[in-house]
Nucleic acid binder design. Structure first.
Lengths: 181, 181
DNA sequence: TCAGGGTCTGACCGATCGGTCAGGACGTGG
DNA sequence: CCACGTCCTGACCGATCGGTCAGACCCTGA
């Protein structure tokens, strides 16, 4: 091969994003990624400690924004909280919909891993915000439907332009969420 | 072991449903299922041709009801269609939420298999019905959010009583779906 | 008593998984 | 010229996967 410039790291990252998006995390082998890059599996593991580290580096920007949103909603209450959470989450989901898509619906499994444990808690706080801090089952169920539905829709409509997807998701979110009592 | 009655078939089915629900289809091995039953992996494969046949028998009732819903919505139009589709899907999702949960978010992968290919088409017709036959992007996006969100919520709220889950899902579905123009 | 069919099992198979390791190729500074 | 660090590789590892197979066990009917 004799690559003059060591841009392999980025190429592996891009190839992994593509493969994860098609066949999911568990469904993609290091062999698959190496084949797409055109290098050996050992090279992939030279640039990344292991498969999980690859996923971690791929998700890092999205997670950082998610944590920022988590801090932001902590300063709001009532209907204001609901609006800030919905707007913030839709914006995040649209911006990072490629990252959401590449998980391929494997959120539940991946969130079990200790490295992503705090994301589970953040998503629970988001549900709580969507529900307007209400613990009525109907409010919590509606909040979950909105959160999960938006995430899935972002994975589905990956090729839609941002300026069309974002307002449509915002509209359905505000329609679906109950007004805070 | 010396089992007097050959009820092993049903025991394997029940054990598979439990395991799939916890670790998903791909994440559950025939070994896992055999261990839960207390028999050998070979016994599992004596009662079922292969792993996919096991899943097929587990999902058969839910698929039959889904196909019935698909036929039923074919006879309606307009706002009537939207209401029938939403009510029918919520009812189906609640009744078979255990089956939805045991797929563990692996729908996209599993639907690729030719055995489940027609389910993909049914879900597309459901989206179409939710959107009131509109091809406006916003309507189709809202329809997808509702469909995916309800499915995910059913998997999440597996232990909720039917009579509490069903009306809550119906309410959020009717709120979220745009009125047909 | 014995033949036959249903049930079940341990041993085994090839494939693939994530991951390790010794070492080759190559550019660079002393 | 040589030593060193970076980049990369083929060969290999143990584990696990879904699936096969010959045969053991047991009940039943002739």
């Amino acid at each position: 091969m004799a690559r003059p410039a060591p841009e392999t790291h980025g190429e592996i990252l891009a190839a992994a994003a593509r493969r994860f998006g098609v066949t999911g995390y568990k469904g993609t082998s290091l062999q698959d990624i190496a084949r797409e890059v055109g290098c050996s599996k050992a090279t992939v593991l030279y640039h990344f400690a292991n498969k999980e580290a690859l996923l971690g580096e791929l998700m890092a920007p999205a997670i950082a924004v998610l944590e920022a949103l988590d801090e932001r909603i902590a300063g709001h209450t009532g209907a204001d909280l609901q609006r800030v959470a919905a707007d913030g989450f839709v914006d995040l989901a649209v911006r990072f919909r490629r990252e959401i898509a590449l998980l391929g619906g494997e959120f539940p499994d991946l969130l079990q891993q200790p490295a992503f444990a705090h994301i589970q808690q953040i998503s629970e706080r988001l549900i709580d915000a969507f529900a307007g801090h209400s613990d009525r089952p109907a409010a919590r169920i509606a909040a979950f439907v909105v959160l999960a539905g938006i995430a899935e829709a972002c994975a589905e409509f990956v090729d839609f332009p941002d300026e069309e997807l974002r307002p449509a998701l915002l509209a359905v979110a505000h329609r679906a969420l109950e007004p805070t009592t």
